[in-house]
Design a binder for these strands. Structure first.
Lengths: 329, 329
DNA sequence: TTGTAAGCGTTATCAC
DNA sequence: GTGATAACGCTTACAA
């Protein structure tokens, strides 16, 4: 292993000169700079990050806790995080919740033990940060997919706005009796998407009676199908359905097909999340794409702000969803 | 920051005693052990991993290079790797190819600079390790999803065996005129699946003429559809089709539906990879599930073998695929 | 069974 | 502009 001393020897200067040449923290004559560059090149010197971290000034590693990497959302978020980390020349230490039985506190602790410079917590489903977790977090943490809470900077998708956009599209397509198929009412994303949808309809003066036109499934295709049955029973004159995710939209489309309902002529369907399969479903599904990579990248930027002593501005960022129109509408 | 010295002070012993108590590398009296435990507990001491890494004996971090984390295969492989890493109390430094313009050499270098104890390379699509890469790799590397090459331990899925299983299933279901829709012929996975399929058919004495019964798409749903058209044209009496991946199977099923062909009655369809959507496709798709998590876990085990100075046994592991039967057959 | 002390490779504080 | 040198927190001979 080749060290800074070797470089100093080869260049005929002292270690401190080499160190300073590397960091640029003091003025070095062009001549010595060149000698040092040559020596480094020749020897193939690479500074030892462990020694650097030991001496002080951060380790150049950030920790990422993702609830379930297997969930495709996590992957896209990580991709965004990594992009920014690369720009900052930082490394990404990865941990997933599944390995800690979803015990976030323990996972965070694991990362802290490694002396990471900061931590990004990517929640699998939108939720507030638990009290005990909140208490244990210090300044170098950013949360993704949570609600804006004091102290911890956060990035979240604009589910409310997404719902509104969906409403706008259906209205533009001529719908006057739209339905909504949601996930469990307790799920923030589903609730927000519904709220935005209702708001969008109201603004255009479209009547919307949640007690009749809304049903709640469990985000699975099967529940999308059964909810559609239920709703069509209650509202035979329905002409569109907004589903809180693509799985339920897929199920609803299947069901409609089985019932002989023509899509999009008789029923327009719009999903959410823009899952991969939406693009090539037998009837390709119009959907709302989440700004996942952007969420990851933004959270990383915020984290580096904090690491470098700046306050992220704003502290809580809400990123818009993007409408992807396909055959189902 | 609380150090080993603080613990030593508090416990009234020397630092080396504390160090040895922690590592268990020499016998310490129960009494002092207890004192040390108490001090650690009380002070909340956590050993500094950077100092440890600096002094010697590994950093406790392994690097994982995945071509594209956004590809769902990568996520499952990572999950397997992480499980084993946790058992070994090691950390995972993550890097994806997309951040290095798929320049594997550069990505590997990035990880090496961080002084990781070892590296797992997870290829996105099955391929041999490039010559230049091979040359740059040292002993502490394991490759996933490649072919068995000397020097570098590897883990790969048994695409050949998977093809045979697919043939066996179709035969069991009474097929006598099966078709094959492959990806680009140059793709190892597709070629192996076809070879296994042909082998399985031959063993049961089913006639199979590749020049007529095989078509090559590009792994997309659209190509699955067009290949089916082509093949049905050539073989109107076909009663089954094995597709080299689920995307093409999905496209083929769509197309068959449009042509009024009843699945599975008139045409049995089997895909490969067991993608998420296969389970809830309008006609759920029979598929071959890849042993992804197992591949990840095994590669990690092999890597730790090497790190700890043992030779992995065997050097090249081929893991079987699992048949998942659904409505399409 | 325990303690002393010499590094590991850097950076930063002095001094020149 | 440049050099010594003392830390950083830990492990591990070597002594006792």
């Amino acid at each position: 292993m080749i060290t800074i001393r070797d470089v100093a020897m080869a260049a005929g200067v002292s270690v401190s000169t080499v160190s300073h040449a590397l960091s640029g923290k003091r003025t070095i004559s062009e001549a010595t700079k060149a000698k040092i560059r040559n020596a480094i090149e020749e020897l193939g010197y690479e500074p030892n990050p462990n020694a650097r971290a030991l001496r002080g000034s951060g380790s150049g590693v950030i920790g990422l806790y993702a609830y379930d990497i297997t969930e495709s959302f996590a992957a896209s978020i990580i991709k965004g995080v990594e992009r920014v980390a690369r720009e900052k020349n930082a490394y990404l230490l990865f941990t997933s919740g599944t390995e800690f039985d979803e015990n976030l506190l323990e996972g965070i602790d694991f990362l802290k033990r490694r002396r990471v410079d900061g931590i990004i917590i990517a929640y699998g489903i939108r939720q507030p940060i638990a009290e005990d977790v909140l208490a244990s977090l210090d300044a170098r943490v950013v949360a993704v997919n949570t609600s804006g809470q004091p102290r911890v900077p956060s990035v979240q998708p604009d589910d409310l706005g997404g719902g509104e956009i969906a409403a706008g599209l259906l209205i533009a397509k001529g719908s006057t009796h739209p339905l909504f198929i949601g996930g469990p009412p307790s799920r923030v994303a589903s609730a927000d998407r519904l709220a935005g949808f209702a708001k969008g309809l109201q603004r255009s003066g479209i009547a919307f009676y949640p007690e009749r036109q809304v049903a709640h499934g469990d985000f699975t295709p099967a529940s999308g199908a059964s909810c559609l049955d239920l709703l069509l029973d209650r509202c035979p004159d329905a002409d569109a359905v907004f589903c809180a995710n693509d799985y339920m939209a897929a199920g609803a489309i299947n069901r409609a097909g089985a019932l002989g309902i023509s899509i999009p002529r008789d029923l327009k369907v719009i999903g959410y999340d823009d899952r991969e399969f939406a693009a090539f479903w037998p009837i390709p599904i119009t959907s709302m794409a989440l700004p996942l990579e952007e969420m990851g990248a933004t959270s990383a930027t915020m984290l580096f702000d904090r690491i470098e002593g700046r306050e992220p501005e704003p502290m809580h960022l809400v990123l818009g969803a993007r409408l992807v129109e396909r055959a189902s509408t």
